[in-house]
Nucleic acid binder design. Structure first.
Lengths: 334, 334
DNA sequence: CAAACAAATGAAAGCGCTTACATATTGTTA
DNA sequence: TAACAATATGTAAGCGCTTTCATTTGTTTG
């Protein structure tokens, strides 16, 4: 592979001049620029990004931490972030934290050792203090799907409470009064907030929230089925079931069907997240969207603006409001 | 951030010695090693991976090209590859080629400029010659889901013909005789092979393959619906429909339902790929699995072995045989 | 106890770039 | 045309490591 030195020799100019035409910042006369370009072309020269990074103290790479590399939520996030950054010549190093504290920290250390110019983190397991320290230690970072007090401008989050409210409100508006809820693990912030929104909607409608029909699941499909079974046993015949995510909604729908209960005629189901397969379920799932792509985009733009000094088109938005995606699984109840 | 120089000063040894304890290849006495380790610890030293790469001409990074960053197929691939390589301290730079020749080439150039030690490519649009040239130019690379003559050992593929055969054979074994087929775009190798397998199964059963019920789709859901409609119009009442992928199978099932046709009672449907949502469809989709994870694993192991000289556990397998995943969408036909 | 060898350590030259700073070239003005 | 900007180009010192080769130190043996 040709180096800058060979290019400089071939073009009959100095290293500095070659570097100048590559980076296009300093002035170079039209004639020499052409000579250099020609030499580069003839040699098939490609700058060594590693050497550039070492010399310039800039890697043009941003680290992205996700919980998993599969699943539509992270797929959308990675896809959006990569596209936006790549358009500006930056590249993304992706690592997975698997929602585990040690692995998340390890992944972050890894990204730091790779000298990423910035980090975009979907960190679930590390504590707020760790993130604040990281932030103060001089690492440029933004957080997706997490709000850390003191770093509000660097956090891009969904208003989960509003989403929880939206889902239950939709059921209430459709005439439902007996409404069950399968929550996510209450150790997770988003799960707590979604539940809080649900409770607010019930209360607002004057419904009983004391001995509410709530089952705590773990966001997995199987717990959707378990949750449904338990709630149905506890209070047979409730007319709507709100689930804190689509996976559990799917599990619940399958379990209901196995009991011979028709969705949505006998039981309405509402999910949360609008993952890809929500459209493929039968009946197609009414759910609350989770604007991952929009959040990923904002995170990428923040980096472009604050780290790479690119001027912004549009404003940076930190908190996203979810919308209800009406499909077929929510029926009216007279 | 502390550098190796500061560590060497703190420990009272030379740079070379610090480097030695980091890399652990050359001998260092127990006493000095401890001094160095202590100094590193106290300074919170983290080696600069960029500088290491430049000096050693090894980046410990492998480039991964996928068509898209979302979707379960690529999610599984990325996930497996990343996990396997990361376990050995390598990291993965992921880029998307969007099944477009120019973008695939650009992505590959990008990975080359990052000086990846090896490339794992899911390249659909570039031609065989390009890949062969790349290979001969000294870049270590392997191909996933693509067989290029002359590079067999570096290709990890599914036997699509066998998969196509399997799907149709299953329908025949279940008693079906009137079998429709929605193929993928015949510009793609895998689509042609899947169709070839289908035809072989028909022929073997002594069924007519002349004016066979075949519709050419594009692997997208909508074409599954279109394909079903057209075939049904052309020959109403056929009892089984084989689709070249799950997306189209889903589209076909939805279209059938809209026509009031029950799956699987009146029409059996078989898919291909066993993507995540196949389990979520109703009825759950009988399909042919596509062992992406296994292929990704092999690709990663090949790299570990051939590029990083790691000794192998187990053998390298290049061609993978698919299996039928029996669920509920294929019924018997007497 | 010195010779002979092995083991541990250090000195220094890169790796391929960027970027002050210095110098050369050109253009402008009186 | 001398004097001076302004502009274009070159020189060389890093960036933080690895690695070769030379040197020092330690160990063994006759």
């Amino acid at each position: 592979m040709a180096t800058i030195y060979e290019v400089s020799k071939a073009a009959g100019v100095s290293l500095a001049t070659v570097s100048r035409v590559m980076n296009g910042n300093s002035k170079v006369s039209e004639r020499t620029r052409n000579k250099v370009l020609k030499a580069m072309d003839e040699l098939g020269y490609r700058p060594n990004a590693i050497a550039q990074s070492l010399a310039s103290n800039r890697t043009n790479s941003v680290g992205l931490l996700v919980s998993e590399l599969h699943g539509s939520f992270f797929g959308d996030l990675m896809s959006t972030v990569e596209k936006e950054l790549r358009a500006d010549g930056k590249h993304v190093i992706i690592t997975a934290g698997h929602s585990d504290e040690a692995r998340e920290k390890e992944a972050i250390e890894f990204l730091k050792s790779r000298r990423c110019d910035a980090l975009i983190l979907h960190a679930e397991a590390v504590c707020d203090d760790y993130l604040r320290e990281l932030n103060e230690s001089g690492v440029s970072l933004v957080l997706v799907n997490r709000m850390v007090p003191g770093m509000e401008q660097q956090c891009f989050v969904l208003d989960n409470e509003a989403g929880g409210y939206l889902a239950t409100k939709a059921a209430i508006d459709a005439g439902h009064r007996d409404i069950g809820y399968i929550s996510g693990p209450q150790s997770k912030e988003d799960a707590r907030q979604r539940l809080a929104g649900h409770v607010r909607a019930l209360r607002e409608a004057g419904l009983n929230t004391e001995n509410a029909l709530v089952y705590q699941g773990d966001y997995h499909e199987s717990e959707g089925a378990n949750g449904f079974k338990q709630l149905w046993q506890q209070h047979p015949g409730f007319s709507a079931l709100i689930c804190a995510n689509d996976e559990m909604a799917s599990g619940a729908m399958t379990a209901a069907r196995e009991e011979g209960i028709n969705v949505p005629e006998q039981l309405s189901v509402v999910g949360f997240d609008d993952v890809l397969f929500a459209r493929y379920l039968h009946p197609r799932l009414t759910t609350v969207d989770n604007p991952v792509s929009a959040m990923g985009l904002m995170a990428a733009r923040w980096v472009l603006h604050n780290v790479y000094k690119k001027k912004l088109s549009g404003v940076i938005k930190n908190v996203f409001l979810p919308e209800l995606i009406s499909r077929d699984s929510l029926g009216t109840h007279l």
